[in-house]
């Protein structure tokens, strides 16, 4: 098996001209489909700036999307990309990573794609601790199909399928990912873009399954039915509700009600990563066969 090399530029390497995120974009595909005020482009740009920071090679990076507004991002990215099927981006990514452990594999998904139809794939990808970085764009709604309630719409949230308010609680996706076995779990928002970029960057370099929830705004399908209305107000709301993990640690559950705890929430490097342990098993089995 080929020796694994981290897909990260050497520190000495110099780039002739400073690159911008355009380096990783198919700008010829613009204008993109996202609505004015949408946060998905902000989250995508945070990922691309993290990729720039790490100097990710396009040829050794694969980005997989599912279906929905967030997954549509892969269509604009100049990496190896797969626009897969609804809820199964992680299944495609698992195959890619197992076949090419040397690739950096990123999954872009949404709350409908990743937490509803793809929920089972999400928990099992966490459990396997395969070195994939999943960025889940959480905008609380099925945006592309017209504002139906998703698992993340939240109690009382108005959606086209819940005109008098959704009466089901949401997942705490980060706690779900941690409980399922993800070894890097973080949460950021489309307001705190620098923090989000750092969390994504560290997730990519973490050797195991990284789950980053990016809480973002959908003014078109969520905001028009739920306060605060308007993209600026929604961003201000994210700013006000976000609270760093360290600060949150000293607070009571009542004080944390409705707040968005951000930052690195969980990291465990003691758990074996799947492609590495699989390679070791191959070595062991082949070694014993030769005896």
């Amino acid at each position: 098996m080929a020796e694994r090399e981290p897909n990260v530029a050497e520190e000495e390497s110099t780039v002739a001209e400073p690159r911008t995120i355009d380096h990783y974009l198919h700008t010829d595909r613009f204008p993109h489909i996202w609505c004015p005020g949408c946060g998905l482009g902000t989250v995508t740009a945070a990922f691309l700036r993290a990729a720039l920071e790490l100097g990710l090679e396009k040829e050794r990076t694969v980005v997989v999307g599912g279906i929905g507004c967030s997954s549509r991002a892969v269509g604009y990215l100049d990496f190896g990309t797969v626009h897969s099927i609804h809820g199964r981006a992680l299944a495609f990514a698992t195959g890619i990573k197992m076949a090419h452990p040397e690739f950096t594999v990123i999954v872009l998904t949404g709350d409908g794609d990743g937490a509803a139809i793809g929920g089972n794939h999400l928990i099992h990808a966490c459990r396997r601790n395969l070195d994939i970085t999943t960025i889940l764009f959480n905008n609380n709604v099925y945006g592309m199909t017209g504002g139906q309630a998703s698992p993340q719409t939240g109690m009382g949230g108005i959606a086209t399928t819940a005109p008098f308010g959704f009466d089901e609680p949401s997942f705490d996706l980060c706690r779900l990912a941690e409980a399922a076995g993800a070894t890097y779990v973080a949460r950021g928002t489309s307001y705190g873009v620098r923090q989000l970029q750092r969390l994504i960057r560290d997730g990519i370099t973490h050797p195991g399954f990284s789950f980053i929830e990016a809480v973002t705004q959908c003014p078109t399908e969520y905001g028009k039915r739920n306060p605060p209305k308007g993209p600026v107000q929604m961003l201000e709301n994210l700013k006000e509700k976000a609270i760093p993990r360290k600060k949150a640690e000293g607070m009571t559950p009542e004080e944390l009600e409705g707040r968005i705890v951000t930052g690195l929430l969980h990291r465990d490097e003691s758990v074996p990563e799947l492609t590495a342990s699989y390679a070791r098993m191959l070595e062991r089995v082949r070694g014993s066969a030769d005896e």
Binding site: Y142, M144, T145, G146, Q148, T160, T161, A162, P163
Partner: peptide, 13 residues
């Protein structure tokens, strides 16, 4: 929901 069926069921809801 799935395009282009969605608004059949959305209207129904």
């Amino acid at each position: 929901p799935i395009t282009p069926q969605t608004d059949v069921v959305q209207s129904y809801s």
